Simulated assay, not measured.
Amino acid sequence: MSVASEALKLTGERQHLILRRALAERIIKIKDLAAELGVHEMTIRRDLDALAEQGLLERVHGGARVKDKTSEELSHHLRAAKNTEAKARIARAALDLIQDGDVVALDASTTALALAAILHARNVTAIVTGLDAANILAASGVSFLMVGGNFHAPARSFVGAFFMDTMRRLHPDKVFFSAKAYSVETGFTDPHLPEVGAKQTLISSGGTRIALLDASKLGRRALATIATLSEVDVLVTDAAPSDDVRAAIEAADIKLVIAQEEP
């Protein structure tokens, strides 16, 4: 990695730390951030200016703050920026499971969004449930149908009765979904109840149901169960799971795909 590339990486990591602090504290001070991160105050000022230009923060005297109306967007931005390399590997492995002519459905997870970004490599029709995937597919020329409903801002997705009624009438060849966590005891789980119902309906509509989870989510649990292993056909992850998770996958006769790093 070049010196310039390393500098850009460090800048990005620092700005993500700043965003996480802003989300937690609402108002952040330049002096406090500089001391915590071990950099000059001018460096923090440049970071805050850059984040303000992106609409993620609002500059105030001596620091910055998060507006109430943008806090959910900021939370989604941080989630999308987490484990990006793992998500990219998982997306490439998932693409190998898709053939030309398939109708594929994507949930509104950031992992499925990584798949949407490369879906133009296949001649398919997509069904999407979130705004970000729709924007990506529209820009890349992929034919798609967006299923609407009540807008769920934390995931930038559509949920609710209208969504579920429409989704039940559709029958994609393959469904790709993610979850907040997976454990042998609770299955695939998510903390957002509106998302749980929407994902359950999406999963039940598909011919082949494919879970996309980075390894950091395995062995953990969230509030509500989306699906059990018996409701899934394939699990794509980026590292070998623990022995108990692997045993459960084998017992359920689920295909396990471990995404490899590019040579």
Results as ranks from 00 to 15, higher is better:
235 L>T: 03
219 G>L: 08
202 L>I: 07
228 T>N: 14
232 V>E: 01
210 I>K: 01
235 L>G: 05
212 L>R: 00
218 L>M: 08
199 K>P: 09
210 I>A: 05
203 I>E: 02
206 G>W: 03
206 G>A: 05
199 K>R: 11
210 I>P: 01
205 S>E: 05
202 L>R: 00
198 A>M: 02
210 I>F: 07
233 D>S: 04
213 L>P: 02
214 D>V: 13
221 R>I: 15
217 K>V: 14
211 A>Y: 06
216 S>Y: 14
221 R>N: 15
230 S>D: 13
201 T>H: 03
236 V>D: 04
230 S>R: 13
207 G>R: 09
234 V>T: 02
229 L>P: 00
220 R>I: 15
218 L>F: 08
197 G>T: 11
228 T>C: 14
233 D>N: 02
201 T>L: 05
236 V>A: 00
212 L>T: 08
199 K>F: 11
220 R>C: 13
237 T>G: 01
234 V>E: 00
209 R>Q: 08
225 T>L: 06
232 V>D: 01
221 R>G: 14
225 T>Q: 06
221 R>Y: 15
231 E>H: 10
217 K>I: 14
218 L>A: 02
205 S>T: 06
202 L>P: 03
214 D>R: 06
231 E>F: 09
201 T>N: 03
224 A>T: 12
204 S>F: 08
220 R>L: 14
206 G>F: 03
216 S>I: 15
219 G>V: 12
232 V>K: 02
214 D>S: 10
235 L>S: 02
215 A>G: 12
205 S>L: 04
204 S>D: 11
224 A>Q: 07
198 A>G: 04
198 A>Q: 01
211 A>M: 10
204 S>I: 10
233 D>T: 04
216 S>T: 15
217 K>Q: 11
236 V>F: 09
207 G>C: 09
201 T>W: 03
208 T>L: 04
215 A>Y: 12
221 R>K: 14
217 K>T: 13
227 A>E: 03
231 E>Y: 08
223 L>I: 15
220 R>P: 13
206 G>K: 01
225 T>A: 07
202 L>C: 05
234 V>I: 06
218 L>W: 05
203 I>P: 02
203 I>V: 08
212 L>H: 07
209 R>E: 11
214 D>L: 10
208 T>W: 08
231 E>V: 10
225 T>I: 09
200 Q>V: 06
205 S>D: 04
211 A>R: 00
232 V>S: 03
208 T>K: 04
216 S>K: 12
223 L>R: 12
205 S>P: 00
207 G>V: 12
218 L>D: 01
211 A>I: 11
208 T>N: 00
237 T>F: 02
235 L>F: 04
216 S>Q: 13
220 R>H: 15
197 G>D: 11
